[in-house]
Design a protein around this nucleic acid. Structure first.
Lengths: 300, 300
DNA sequence: GATCGTCATAGCCGTTGGTTATCACCACAG
DNA sequence: CTGTGGTGATAACCAACGGCTATGACGATC
């Protein structure tokens, strides 16, 4: 059976113990004298001990009060430190922006350009870059690990996020150079329905379906050759012949290395690459500023 | 502008931070889960910082929460120590009885006899003896310095105290052997009305009047030779011829030293020596026990 | 696809913590 | 002796707090 106390009451007690005068202490604490009187009595009742003796000659500490006073001060300073620590952490958070991304956005120095625009406007802000795996299609937005993120549409829980368009790119088919279909300069998606595909993890949700082009399969389930959650992994799976996969045109260079190539595909739409943030963060100045910096960099 | 907090809320927070599970923490804290949830949110609102992140995968500490946790533990342990200190002090007070007296009660080993009876009944109790000056006719009862006290009636604020009779003794006149009145074996108070008297301090109130035998003066104000607030002082004042004074028969030996003597006085009543305590302490076991020990010692 | 378990919300109610107005008491000046 | 000023305590009132039960939204699981 622990007995708790309001830190305020200890502050009140310490003030009275210092002043040895209720009215003056009440003034110092910006409360009325009866309120102070009542709170001190409540504290005494709660502790089952008389802390202050009031008589004709004034106010004096009792033994119990004298025993409590240093501890009360300890509690007060401990709490002060705690509140300050939270405040400091919070201030750091407010002046730090974490940018999430799955693979590098690349695309001709987009990231450095946005950074320089942003830091020109907010030189005091620390900009942190965070790379996340493909398990999380929101690149850290969902769990608060990031404040803004470069991601591919569609996002899960779409209404929870706002975004601004970075690029809209056609999807190419990535496949081993040795693959029979590599002989064609351009492909038709209808010819790929039976091909094993490399797929994002289940947790990627609608984004996984998008890169499988589920909407172009008329209900026929795709064959899954392997699951991939990184660029190197994808390259290895392609070389190993585990399957083929769609990639955005802008990402083609990342995997078009020895033994892997890409081909245009008819019959599927483009993909949209966006900078996204949580809807509830829309008002945060840094989020807005970064989005603006991104927009004006892209729109140039 | 200081922000206070209820220690309970920190306890709640620490519990959730340890369990990382609201329902389990609520059980451990013996509160309902909604109550816990609400209090944590209130704490977060008060601090203006998210302390815990709740999402599909469970509960996790945020940076602010992690920053707060050790401080919260500090506050909790500081308060625990404070409460324990008060409790210890209070326990000591409950097991200590402070006995006040102005001069030694003397009277044939009364004090040791009461002590041995009392400690036989309460061997665990510390009995402290405290000597007080004649400025305080209640011998420390008024300001709480003592729990019980051997005093002379009448007391100021008589209704505030209870008492049990120790002795009823005639009042003698103490005077220098060289004084003309010392020639008589017995005196009449009417013959003393013009004598300068030694008086207790003003603060002694009605007791001062009693030792001046004000009620036997028919309104004629006494002549005050000096104020006295101790036995040695009284002896010196008598020897110096500053005045005479009344003393209880039982106290006569204390000042009947070289050059000072006492004589019976007709026309004034006796004095009552009592063990007294504050009325509000009447129920305290130790007070009652001491009074009982005193009564049975006296009544023997 | 129903169920379970999680945390959040709603609505209710006794308690708390503040207010102003007033009292009882004492010291002190006239 | 008698006002008068200043002390802390008390009364009456009221908004906010802190707890409860019941219920909801949402994933995870079988």
């Amino acid at each position: 059976m622990t007995i708790d106390v309001h830190v305020r009451d200890l502050r009140y007690f310490a003030a009275v113990a210092e002043e040895l005068h209720f009215t003056r202490a009440a003034e110092r604490l910006y409360v009325s004298q009866p309120a102070l009187s009542k709170q001190i009595r409540a504290l005494e009742r709660q502790l089952g001990a008389e802390l202050l003796r009031r008589d004709r000659h004034g106010v004096a500490l009792t033994a119990a009060g004298a025993a409590l006073l240093p501890h009360a001060r300890n509690v007060l300073s401990a709490w002060e430190a705690g509140a300050a620590a939270v405040e400091a952490t919070e201030a750091a958070r407010r002046s730090t922006l974490v940018v999430g991304m799955s693979t590098s956005p690349g695309r001709g120095g987009l990231l450095p350009a946005v950074r320089s625009r942003f830091t020109a406007e907010h030189p005091e802000v620390t900009l942190r870059l965070r790379q996340l795996t493909w398990d999380d299609p929101t690149a850290g937005l969902a769990d608060g690990g990031t404040d803004v993120a470069f991601v591919w549409l569609p996002l899960p829980d779409e209404e929870r996020y706002d975004w601004t368009l970075v690029a809209e790119e056609p999807r190419l088919l990535a496949l081993p150079e040795s693959h029979p279909l590599a002989a064609h300069a351009e492909l038709d998606f209808a010819d790929l329905l039976d091909e094993p595909f490399l797929a994002l993890p289940e947790s990627a949700g609608p984004l996984r379906d998008h890169w499988l082009a589920l909407d172009a399969r008329a209900g026929r389930p795709p064959r899954i050759g392997a699951e991939i959650s990184g660029a190197e992994e994808t390259y290895e799976a392609l070389v190993a012949g585990l399957g083929v996969c769609l990639v955005a045109a802008g990402n083609a260079p990342l995997i078009s290395l020895g033994g892997v190539t890409t081909r245009p595909v008819r019959g599927i739409g483009p993909s949209r690459y966006v900078l996204a943030w949580r809807h509830e963060d829309a008002h945060r100045p840094l989020v807005g500023a970064y989005a603006r910096a991104c927009r004006s960099t892209v729109g140039r």
